[in-house]
Each structure stands twice: as C-alpha cells, then as structure tokens.
Design a binder for these strands. Structure first.
Lengths: 163, 163
DNA sequence: TTGATTGCAAAGCATTTGCATGCTA
DNA sequence: TAGCATGCAAATGCTTTGCAATCAA
C-alpha cells in the first residue's frame, strides 16, 4: 500500500500535478479490493468513506492511476471499463464465464512467446495485448452446479455474449 | 453472395421473421466490403443505394446477421462495435497498430491449442475468444515510413491506446 | 388479416467537458 | 498567488426503445 502511494506521488510530481485527499483516498480504496472494479463500483466504495467525492473525480483519478501504471484497464464486454491492479502484478489474461460472474486469471508464457513470433513475422512491435477466453465454467455444466473454488466472483452477473 | 443470402433467409424463416428489402440490401452491402465496418460506416454505404433506410434498421439487421452467423462482432477499442464476415471465414485474431489504421489478421493453431489446454485445466468449455495484439506496425518505426503491404487500412485512423 | 418491420424521435448509459469555486504547491 | 483540482450539471457519442404507420406472409 505504502509503495503504491509513493509511486502515485512520484507520478504526480513528475507531471506537475497536485496531491489531493480525494486522489489518495481513491487509490487507497482501489488497492483494498482485488476485484475488477468499474468506476461506478469504486465510486460507491469511496463514497462510504467520504460522501463529498464526486463521480467525475473517480473517472479522472483512474486515468491517472493508469498513467502511473498502478492500474490497468480491462474490458469484459459488460459495457463498462474495469480496472485491475498493475503494480507488481504480473501480466495475465482472463477466462470469463458467460453464464455467471466467474472469472479466472491465467498466464501462459507459451502463448506470450507465440504472440511475439507472430508480431515479429509481421514487423510489429507489441505494446500491449488483450486475450479473453469466453466460455462456460465448471459449475455451469456439471450436475452439482457448484462453482469451482478458483472461480472468483465478478461484481456484475450479467455478461453479454463475447465480442 | 448468393449463399449468404440463402443462409440469411433460412435464418429469418426459422425465427419466423420477415424478409424485407432493407435487410437484403444491408446484407448485400455488408458482404461487399472486406473492411471491419461500424454501423455508422455501413449506414453511410447503404444510404448511397437507398436513402430511405434508417439508422436503427442497420443496428437491428446487424444483430440478425450475427445471430445468423453471417457476421461477427469485433472491438478494436475505438468506441464502437465493428463487424467482420463470419460465414466460411476461418476464425482469426488481430494485430492492431495504435499509430495508424493498419490491421493484420492472424491465425495461430498453436495458440488455439494452448487456449484449449488452459480452459480444460480450469474446467472451462470455450464458446468464443478475443485475442487482440496492440502494437506499432513496421511503417511506424522504420525509417521509410512506408506501410507494409499486408497492413490493410482501417476506416478510422484514431485508435486510443489498448485496454 | 395479423403481426413483424420500419424510421423517426426520444431515451439510455457510460464517459467527458465546461465552468465557477476551492485548494495545493 | 497561480493555476491545478473539484463537483456539479450539461454535453457527448454509441446504442436501444417507444410508437404510429407500413408491409410481408
């Protein structure tokens, strides 16, 4: 927590921006959740600690956190941008259950390597990527209906079909 | 062209929906472009042939084409949904240049296989996936500034950074 | 005939912007 | 003090919906 705050403040200083209580609070609340929060969800959480913080400020602060490489935008096709921790979190991709709010993070060095190969073949320099696998999780096709333990719940239950 | 029209009409019949001149025209125009068109772009193209067709009808027809598996939604983070041909077009993913409108389609059976492995490991049944690699294409870091020939132009030049 | 389709206008949503006020450096 | 930040309201941009008129089956 301490470390991320330092990173943020250094970023603000570098950009000649100002440290404010709102910005600090939003970062603090963001760091406390391991969920993939939307601005609205984060706003609700922030509001519980300080009712005066505005919606717009959360939007603007999330942009700053992305610039400071503390947050990373993700999109699960539910119509809103979500954010996950980026600082000292290895890159990963997502398995997304379209039947429930199950979400699994996965890492595949082999896929990353193949990506590089492909990019190289076409003369591309990769800056970023987004690999989303949509499907149906265990709990939704097995008879028990139980969610596998590694299926962490998402915040919003309703995902439209994949794009 | 003929074949896709048949597929469409069969889909309409199956769903007890009606064949209309607007729907036929929109499909026809969609099939004529190899671009990843947005609804707005498609609407403009349709308008040139029939000025009476409405915006809403294009939206609604694209939904039908997706249901009929003639079109596939894609999203390049430019704030609008785009569509590409799906009928008899093998699945592929995209390399997207964030500096220009270059777009490269790629296929990687190895990545597809690894995806399956990962999904299986987590008890997922894959229904769909979206793998987008954002980066800078050849023409934007080589001295010549020339676009490689396989960089097909997109319609809109301004892509925001990757999500 | 009957119910689906159309096109317009209006509504919905997530996100951004304008601006007067407030606060950091 | 200078100018960045804030929060509200209004605007934006894409997409959907309500509805009366129209049209396919």
């Amino acid at each position: 927590m301490k470390e991320e705050l330092d990173v943020f403040h250094r970023h603000l200083a570098k950009e000649r921006l100002k440290r404010t209580s709102q910005r600090d609070l939003i970062l603090e609340v963001f760091l406390e959740t391991e969920d993939h929060v939307s601005v609205e969800e984060l706003y609700d959480m922030v509001k519980r600690r300080d009712t005066t913080v505005g919606f717009t400020t959360v939007y603007r602060t999330m942009r700053l956190l992305v610039e400071a490489r503390l947050a990373r935008e993700v999109n699960f096709n539910d119509g809103r941008t979500r954010y996950e921790h980026e600082y000292k979190h290895d890159h990963h991709d997502h398995l997304i259950c379209t039947e429930c709010d199950a979400l699994i993070e996965f890492v595949s060095p082999e896929i990353e390597r193949l990506q590089e190969e492909i990019a190289q073949k076409f003369g591309f320099v990769i800056t970023d990527h987004s690999h989303r696998i949509f499907g149906v999780c265990n709990g939704h096709y097995t008879k028990t209906g139980e969610l596998p333990p590694y299926c962490r719940k998402r915040q919003n239950g309703d995902l439209p079909p994949a794009s």
